Computed example of a mutant assay.
Amino acid sequence: MRTIAWLLCTLGSISTVHANVEKTIFLGPSAIVLPNVRPGIDELDVDTLEPAELPILATQLSVKFPTESAPRGLDSWYLLRGLEEGRRYEVRICWPAFQPTDFWLDTFTITQVDTPELIASLAGYTDRARTSPSQKLRYTADGSSTAQSLLFLRVQAAASYYSTNKTLMQYPPLVDVDIILEPFILNVLPRSLGPAAIYITVVAVAAWFISGYTYRWIIAVSKEYEEKDHKE
């Protein structure tokens, strides 16, 4: 199922595949040095994506049906690391069409996350993941003073179907997803579209030369027939 999701996501980067791909585009934030205090950012036990090392995460997300208190279902949190300040990125989440789900993706800097609402959401996610939730967010540089450009990614997932099965409505199954972090080329084009852009450019240039050659050949042939007609 994850292979199907990945294929749909790859296609979604070329042409929109409705109900299978959701994405958000953002710029890499300014690099910051994380204070070496505990508990640290790595102790949150959230999955990490990096454009160079781990750009694709195949996982399963917990979902629930929308309620008044949670209109967007359940929150899941991830960490985006290894970003470049000012560079444009895209995060896509892809899932099979036979698992109808609504997704919302948002990115936050460290300072933006440090609010009661978002801290509670992050703590709730880590609690579901059987980790110890923090009452106060703190961060660690793992003994390193190197500045880092990083963001938190919040994925909200709500089941979007109806069933007469009461158990299914109360406990919807996990959704197979691929989460993909992709940088843009020159802040214009997603990297996955680079080969397609090169192919289209080569075809366009080749078509221009071939059309010019074909036009000259047609003109030459028509002139040749005109000369023959005059001689006759």
Score class of each variant (00 low, 15 high):
A31I: 12
P173R: 10
P195A: 01
I210K: 07
L122E: 06
I200R: 05
A157K: 05
S132W: 02
E84H: 05
R154G: 09
S149C: 07
S30M: 09
L83R: 15
L44P: 10
P71D: 06
S15V: 05
L151A: 08
W6T: 12
I56L: 02
W208V: 07
T140D: 14
E227S: 08
S144R: 04
A159K: 12
G86Y: 04
S211L: 00
T111A: 11
I218G: 00
Y171N: 07
I32Q: 13
P173V: 14
V205G: 09
A196E: 10
I4M: 11
E182T: 02
K228S: 10
P35C: 13
P55Y: 01
E85S: 11
D75L: 05
L27P: 00
I32C: 12
E43K: 03
I119G: 02
D106Q: 11
L168S: 02
A206C: 11
S121M: 06
F184D: 01
G82H: 11
A31K: 14
V188A: 08
W104I: 05
Y161K: 03
I93P: 06
Q170H: 09
V175H: 04
V33T: 14
V21G: 02
E43S: 14
Y78V: 07
L153N: 02
I185R: 04
A123P: 04
V221N: 03
M1H: 11
P29E: 00
P183D: 01
L153M: 00
T167W: 11
Y215G: 03
D106I: 02
V177S: 07
E50T: 14
L168Y: 04
T140Q: 11
S145I: 08
E182A: 04
I110Y: 07
D127E: 10
I56W: 06
P96D: 12
S222T: 06
L7H: 08
A206S: 13
I14T: 07
E68T: 14
R130E: 13
D45I: 14
C94Q: 01
Q112E: 15
A52F: 08
L168N: 10
A58N: 07
I200Q: 14
L137H: 04
L122D: 03
L193F: 03
W6C: 10
T140L: 03
T201E: 03
A52C: 11
K64S: 02
